[in-house]
Amino acid sequence: MTELGIAMIGHAFMGAAHSQAWRVAPHFFDLPVRPVMSVLCGRDADRAQAAAERLGWAEAVTDWKSVLERDDVHVVDICTPGDTHAEIAVAALEAGKHVLCEKPMANTVAEAVAMAEAAERAAQRGVRAMVGFSYRRVPALGLARDLVAQGRLGRIHHVRAQYLQDWIVDPAAPLSWRLDKEKAGSGALGDIGAHIVDATQFILGEKISEVMGTLVTFVPERPLASTHSGLSGTAATGQTGPVTVDDAALFLARFAGGALGSFEATRFANGRKNALRIEINGSAGSLAFDFEDMNVLQFFDGTEDAAVAGFRRIMVTEPEHPYVAAWWPAGHGLGYEHAFTHQAVDFVRAVAEGTDPAPSFADGLQVQRVLAGVEASSASGSWQQV
């Protein structure tokens, strides 16, 4: 095989990010097979066709099931709301298509279990599945993982993680599908909290084993709009509807290796646009990262002489750093979209080489269990085993 035909289901925010990745990946990375943007699928024919032309897809269709029957489609890329992930992913895997599915993998643990089991069965036939936790492909977080694996931080004591946004802090912001539990599964917890759960587990190479948390909805009713298809609606109707997900999530965690974690995910951090922050403290050093300065990793080496010790600002733009050699000269930073390109590269290579990509659907299920544990803890007020 020299080409890998891609069918992308959904074409909004994530669809645009994934499209850019598929377009760019073969031009900057040496890939064993070339991804081909064969077909885009959307519910509305006119909008899907316009998106296909704008984003670079060869054609557009409205029935996702039809792409599973096509010989020119080898990969199904799922960029739809969470309530559709399980049905599409399981059907695609059973049809022999490799699957890349956006996070969170599912809306419930039961759905995630079904997806993980389908992926396990498919793997026996050489069919691969991966979850789109793109932030683990940011070079600075890849370097963080490497430093932890090398023992540069010693024994890990503390993990602090935040994901702060403010896009719905205005109570007049209209209701959207992301605020509907049936479609989204959860609010800030699953949408952005899932990212910091995966990122911290990735960096430590350990799973979260226990959680205790609380969920809060600050604005329980929001204006209805004539369309609920995006982050914001249009043409307010004058009516309101209920917000059925959390606006913010706070939880404590214990990692399998003994580290303590504190996590915060909110869409009400006024002034914070996309602040994914992680700090890790160990017996021999510390790391700190903020996505709003995404090309930098702060590293403290606790073994240095106290007279000169301090956090070191590492510009993660050297060719020795993860993924960076394919891009620009040192000091020329990367952006949000590059993590999706790295994701596409890793997925294509795994499929071509017949290896299991990461994060797997089993990894996605683990994250789903953490999210479910936080929800259960918020309801019960007690620690929950993951």
Results as ranks from 00 to 15, higher is better:
residue 8 M to R: 10
residue 11 H to V: 07
residue 16 A to E: 14
residue 23 R to F: 04
residue 29 F to C: 02
residue 32 P to Q: 08
residue 45 A to N: 00
residue 47 R to D: 03
residue 52 A to D: 00
residue 59 E to R: 13
residue 59 E to G: 06
residue 61 V to N: 04
residue 61 V to I: 14
residue 62 T to F: 02
residue 62 T to R: 06
residue 63 D to A: 05
residue 68 L to K: 01
residue 72 D to V: 05
residue 78 I to S: 01
residue 81 P to M: 07
residue 82 G to C: 07
residue 90 V to D: 01
residue 95 A to E: 04
residue 102 E to G: 02
residue 110 A to R: 09
residue 127 V to M: 06
residue 143 L to W: 04
residue 144 A to R: 09
residue 144 A to P: 04
residue 150 Q to L: 09
residue 153 L to A: 10
residue 157 H to K: 12
residue 160 R to Q: 14
residue 167 W to H: 13
residue 175 L to M: 12
residue 179 L to W: 09
residue 181 K to I: 15
residue 187 G to V: 00
residue 188 A to H: 09
residue 195 H to M: 08
residue 199 A to F: 09
residue 200 T to C: 14
residue 210 E to Y: 01
residue 216 V to D: 11
residue 227 T to W: 05
residue 229 S to F: 12
residue 230 G to K: 06
residue 241 G to Y: 04
residue 247 D to F: 09
residue 252 L to F: 14
residue 252 L to Q: 15
residue 258 G to F: 01
residue 267 R to T: 13
residue 276 L to W: 06
residue 280 I to G: 03
residue 281 N to F: 13
residue 282 G to I: 02
residue 293 D to C: 05
residue 295 N to G: 13
residue 299 F to T: 01
residue 301 D to Q: 05
residue 303 T to I: 07
residue 305 D to G: 02
residue 310 G to H: 07
residue 312 R to S: 13
residue 314 I to R: 03
residue 317 T to I: 03
residue 319 P to V: 04
residue 326 A to K: 00
residue 327 W to F: 15
residue 327 W to L: 14
residue 335 G to M: 15
residue 342 H to G: 08
residue 348 V to Y: 08
residue 351 V to W: 09
residue 355 T to V: 15
residue 356 D to I: 15
residue 356 D to N: 14
residue 362 A to F: 10
residue 366 Q to N: 15
residue 370 V to K: 11
residue 373 G to T: 08
residue 376 A to T: 12
residue 378 S to R: 07
residue 378 S to T: 10
residue 382 S to A: 15
residue 383 W to H: 03
residue 386 V to F: 12
